[in-house]
Design a protein around this nucleic acid. Structure first.
Lengths: 347, 347
DNA sequence: AATTAGCACTCAATAGGGTTGAGTGCTAAT
DNA sequence: ATTAGCACTCAACCCTATTGAGTGCTAATT
C-alpha cells in the first residue's frame, strides 16, 4: 500500500491533470501544492509511483500523467470517503425540467440524457426501461373491418402494445369475445417473461373449439410480447468529446463517435453491466470496447418501485470530473425513479 | 451564357476537384485533359470564369476551385442530359435487404438510412412517414381495471395508437360501448387532420347524456391523435464526414455533427423542403442552416400509393458524387414506395 | 484577333537549425 | 532520509531557406 506522502504526490498529479490535461513535473508540483518537501524528493516519489504503475511519462523528459490504475485508486477512495451530499434544490430543479418536457416514458428517458449531458458537459447515455417483469393486465381482440383483427395487450405499468392481423374468413364478434375472455382468464397476471415461456401447447388444448384460430393467434401474441419492451437507447452530446484536448486527434474522435452512433453496441454496453444498485464506474482499459479504452464510463440505475429497470450514464475522458458526475448521476437516478414510479407505479 | 470551351474548362476543374479535393491549375489541366489548347489559353479562360463567379482561388498563387455556382450549373446539366438509368439488379438487391431486416415501418426507414449511408459513403437522413392524411378506421374505449380505461385508435394504414387514462368513478362497460359506438359513428372515415379540427363542441352537444364523460375524453383523443403520426427522423453514417479532407478541421466537423445530432433541426430540414416529386438538391450556400453552408443536401420523397409521405436523403461535401448519389436515391425512393405500399397500401 | 511561349512573381508547404523551457535521473553534500 | 546541483532530454516554437505549383502580363506567332 502507498504511504501517506506518495498518496499526496499522486493526488497532486491527478488533481493537476484533471484540470489541465497536461503532464506535470516535480518542480511545478512543489511550487503549486504545499507538500513541504523539495522537488527532488517529489521527483523520487514520482519515480517510485511510476514503477508501481500509477504514473507514466508521454516521453522521457516530460512530466508525469496518471495511469488508469491511479484513477481507480482515486475513484475508490472517493466512493469510500466523500459522502456525496445531494443538492436538493438542484435535484428539484432538474425534476421540474424532466417532468415538464416529457409526456411519454421514452421521451422522459431521452430528455434525461439530454439534460444530463448539458449539466455534466459529457456525452450522456440512457436506456429505456426493461419491463420483462411486468404483468399482463388485459388482453383483447377487437374486430376492425372485415377480416382485420386488432390484438391489444395491456401491461400493468400502462404499457400497451397492439398488432393488426388478418384472419381469412373473419370471426364473428361474439366468438372473438369468448376467445378474448379465455385468454384473459389464462394469461392475466403473468409476467411477459412467463407468458413467453408458457404460451405453448397447454392453452390450445383447453379450447379445441377454436383450435384453428388460436393456433394462428398464438404466434402473433408471441411476437407482440417480444416487441412490448423493445429496448431503446438514447445518446446526447456526442460532440462534447471535442472539448477535450485528448480528442483533438481526428481518428480518436471518429472512433468514439462511431461507437456512440452504433445503437447495438450501446445497448450491449448498458445491458451487460451488472445490474446492481449504485454507481458503476469503468475506467479506461477496464472497458471492453476498444474505442472506450481511454474513456471512463459512469452509470447508475433507475427503478420502478424497487425493481431496477434501466440505466443512465455518462462517457468522458478518463480524466473526467468523477465527483461532480457521480453527484449528477445520483440526482438523475433518484428523479427518474420517482417520476417513473409515480407515472406507472401505483397499482 | 458560357461558350463551349469555357464549359469544357469548367467541367475539367469540377471533374478534377471532385476527385482530389485539391485546387487545380492551368498547366495540370492542359496535361491531364485533352482540350487542344495550351495552358496559357486555359489560364485566360479560367481568369474569365473566375470573373463570372464560377471559380475561385484559395489564395493568389494557387489553382482554382469550383464555386457553388459552378456546381449548380453542373448539377442542372446533369439532371437535364443524363437520363439516369437504374440498375435493376442493384435495386432488387437493396429491396431484399430492406424487406429482410425490417419488421416495422419505423425500422424500415431507419434501415433505409443505414443502407443508404453504407452505399453512398455519405451521411444519410430519413424521416418517418407523415400520415396526417390517413383516415380513422376504428375508435374504441376498453375498460381495464377499476377506473382505468384504454383508448384505442386505429388508422387505415395499420397505424394504431393507444392511451390509458383514469375516470374517477369508473364507467360501466355498456355505457363505454355506447360512447365508443357513438364516437365511431361520428369520426370514422375522417382524416386525422379533419378530426383535430372538427372535434370541438358539436360532438358534445349531440350526446348530452354523457356530457361529463365525453368532456373528459375529448382532450385525450386530441392528444392521442397528435402523437399518432409523431415524426421520427433517422440519421446514419455521421462519421463518414471525416473521410473528406475539407472536414479535417475539428470545428467544422463539430458543427456538422452537432447539427446532425439535433433531431429538431433535421426534421425542419426535411419537412421544409417543398414536398415535390423527384430529386431535390441544395448546394452549399443555398442551404439555410449555417453548418451546412459547405455541404450539399440531396433528397427525394417516398410515397404511399400516390401520396407523398416522407423524405430520404444524403448530406455530403459540395464536391460530392452527385450522379451516383442521385441514382442511389432514385432506387431508395422506388423501393420504399413499393414496400410501404405493399405493407400498408391495399385497402 | 486569337493563341501561345516566356518570364517574373506569389505563396503554401516542407525541411532544417537554433533556442527555450519544463522536465528527468543521478550524485554528492547536508 | 532529504536536498541541492548538474548534465541531459525532448517537444514546442520560431526562424530561414527551398521547392513547386500556381498566377498574370507581355511580346511573339499563327
Amino acid at each position: 500500500m502507498l504511504d501517506e506522502r506518495k498518496k499526496k504526490v499522486l493526488y497532486a498529479v491527478i488533481d493537476s491533470y484533471l484540470l489541465t490535461a497536461e503532464p506535470i513535473g516535480s518542480r511545478t508540483i512543489s511550487k503549486r501544492y504545499n507538500l513541504g518537501v523539495s522537488s527532488a524528493t517529489i521527483r523520487n516519489e514520482m519515480s517510485d509511483l511510476e514503477e508501481l504503475g500509477y504514473l507514466s511519462k508521454p516521453h522521457t523528459s516530460s512530466g508525469r500523467v496518471p495511469s488508469d490504475k491511479a484513477y481507480r485508486l482515486y475513484v475508490d477512495q472517493l466512493l469510500k470517503t466523500k459522502k456525496l451530499k445531494i443538492d436538493m434544490n438542484k435535484k428539484e430543479e432538474i425534476k421540474r425540467k424532466l417532468t415538464k418536457e416529457s409526456k411519454e416514458i421514452d421521451e422522459l428517458i431521452q430528455n434525461a440524457a439530454k439534460i444530463l449531458s448539458a449539466i455534466t458537459h459529457y456525452t450522456a447515455l440512457a436506456i429505456s426501461p426493461q419491463l420483462k417483469k411486468i404483468r399482463l393486465k388485459h388482453i383483447q381482440l377487437i374486430p376492425i373491418d372485415g377480416s382485420e383483427i386488432l390484438l391489444v395487450l395491456v401491461g400493468e405499468k400502462g404499457i400497451v402494445k397492439n398488432t393488426i392481423f388478418n384472419i381469412e374468413h373473419g370471426i364473428p364478434e361474439n366468438q372473438l369475445n369468448r376467445i378474448s375472455n379465455f385468454l384473459n382468464h389464462k394469461l392475466k397476471g403473468l409476467t411477459i417473461d412467463d407468458i413467453e415461456k408458457a404460451i405453448e401447447r397447454p392453452i390450445i388444448e383447453e379450447m379445441y373449439e377454436f383450435k384453428d384460430i388460436i393456433d394462428k393467434i398464438i404466434p402473433i401474441i408471441d411476437k407482440s410480447l417480444e416487441t412490448m419492451d423493445d429496448v431503446e437507447v438514447y445518446s446526447d452530446g456526442i460532440t462534447k468529446i471535442f472539448d477535450f484536448p485528448e480528442y483533438k486527434d481526428l481518428d480518436k474522435a471518429r472512433s468514439f463517435i462511431s461507437f456512440i452512433e452504433d445503437k447495438e453496441l450501446l445497448i450491449d454496453l448498458l445491458m451487460n453491466n451488472p445490474i446492481e444498485n449504485g454507481i458503476e464506474i469503468t475506467i479506461g482499459d477496464e472497458n471492453i470496447y476498444e474505442p472506450l479504452k481511454d474513456c471512463s464510463l459512469i452509470t447508475t440505475t433507475y427503478k420502478l418501485g424497487d425493481m431496477t429497470i434501466g440505466r443512465i450514464g455518462v462517457i468522458g475522458p478518463t480524466r473526467m470530473d468523477y465527483l461532480m458526475t457521480i453527484n449528477s448521476l445520483k440526482i438523475f437516478s433518484m428523479n427518474l425513479t420517482e417520476i417513473l414510479t409515480r407515472l406507472l407505479g401505483e397499482e
